[in-house]
Nucleic acid binder design. Structure first.
Lengths: 241, 241
DNA sequence: CGTCAATTTGATTAAATTCAATTTTCGTGG
DNA sequence: CCACGAAAATTGAATTTAATCAAATTGACG
């Protein structure tokens, strides 16, 4: 089964497709060492303190990363979708990874990743993408108001998933609230406002949000300065192939 | 001149000391390819869109990383101190690096870093440290109130610099405000409150903040679950030496 | 159909921002 | 060395935003 190839086509702007840009031979090696696993809703993939000896590629479903304060306050660090690669950490993980839906992922032992220079480069690229992404989130939390956080979150996700007609939102409001530094009520109010404006439709039974006016969604999010186009085939990857 | 060795001893918990854990031979190689540069207050090291062909080790002084929205709102992503390594990015930088004080740093061409597997590992370790750090900041912005952000920021910095009697704060209030997602007035009020409690002293002329009661500072910051001790000599570095 | 959980909506409150002065600090030049 | 002006920091209201409190509504599921 060509699982890893499927992953490659899963979504255009995934937070790192491990197998992207790999030549057939390297892809074959990767396929040989990757193990499959299936998850039910709420399953924990790893938690803080767990030994970080694998990286994970999300094939189907959705996952979130989160941390807690000891008093229970929670921050959802990010939502992961098919194609995303995660689990980067030193000896131990510092956050928790939870399946939002029934999911399937492939686990790759980090030891195996050190052998192939192409993969090492690929991983480096992915972890840099992660850093940029996290900085985006920092800006969102630090300098945007509630309505902006919601529209920016939605428009970023919409763009990342390739501007589809409907956005999968497999998480609950409370998860979005804990991601955006807001309360459930505020998230609900902002979604209601967007619905009233005709920008989004009502969330369907199967947790899919119709995007009625993507352009307006992007217009409502605070604009960032144009970013140089990141080319997956360029940069440090070139000199390794 | 043993600049990179100096860097190594600069501070205990730096956001990555590139030369840490290097054997003499590798250190020699690194020293051979590193270039020095000196910066004045406000100097830009790189900006968004600039080609990311070097990584930087801060030897003396202080630097901040920041991003902007087009309407001018700013987020200070992090403050860097001697020993910190920065500049990780794909082909282009996505944020701006500005010298807070007269500084000196060493520039290392990324091309040179790919040769030594020990350095590659070291860089991987550092960029993971970065990710953890950024996630800490996400939690701070997303789930802490103003007073907590300030005490958590100060106590983290205090710990990172080795619990000194006085903390160097070479940035202006506006920079701290833009880092913590607050306004200058709020930052000022919180510092005043801590001063009234006798936890900190008045900021001295040379931008040094006396820490009168570090234990109280840490007690006021919202506690995080205990984190597994990260050992610089352990983890993935072991299998490369 | 009834129950429980999640969401939505409204009213009130608390927190931080904004606005508005002052005060302090710092650099410059007399 | 001191005076002056500009910039930064402090402090005090007033205002705004989002949180909190409190129902009411919707929806999933047995």
């Amino acid at each position: 089964m060509l699982a890893l190839v499927e992953v490659c086509h899963a979504n255009v702007e995934a937070k790192g497709r491990l197998c992207a840009c790999l030549k057939p031979r390297a892809l074959g090696r990767l396929r040989a060492i990757a193990a499959d696993s299936r998850l039910e809703v709420g399953d924990k993939i790893f938690g803080p303190g767990d030994r970080a000896d694998h990286v994970y590629g999300l094939r189907q479903g959705a996952v979130m990363l989160q941390t807690h304060l000891t008093d229970g306050r929670r921050q959802v660090l990010s939502f992961l979708f098919p194609g995303d690669t995660f689990g980067f950490a030193d000896s131990a993980h510092h956050c928790e990874a939870i399946a939002l839906t029934r999911s399937s992922l492939c686990e790759i032992p980090v030891s195996a990743l050190n052998d192939d220079p192409l993969l090492v480069n690929r991983l480096r690229h992915i972890s840099r993408t992660w850093l940029v992404d996290t900085h985006d989130q920092t800006l969102r939390l630090g300098r945007m108001r509630a309505a902006e956080r919601v529209t920016d979150f939605l428009s970023a996700l919409w763009t990342r998933l390739g501007s589809p007609d409907a956005l999968p939102l497999p998480m609950r409001w409370i998860d979005i609230a804990d991601h955006l530094g807001l309360r459930i009520e505020t998230v609900s109010r902002e979604f209601s406002a967007l619905r009233r404006l005709g920008i989004i439709g009502p969330l369907s039974h199967d947790c899919v949000l119709p995007i009625r006016d993507g352009a307006a969604l992007i217009r409502l999010a605070p604009p960032r300065p144009p970013r140089a186009a990141a080319n997956c085939h360029g940069g440090e990857l070139a000199d390794a192939s």
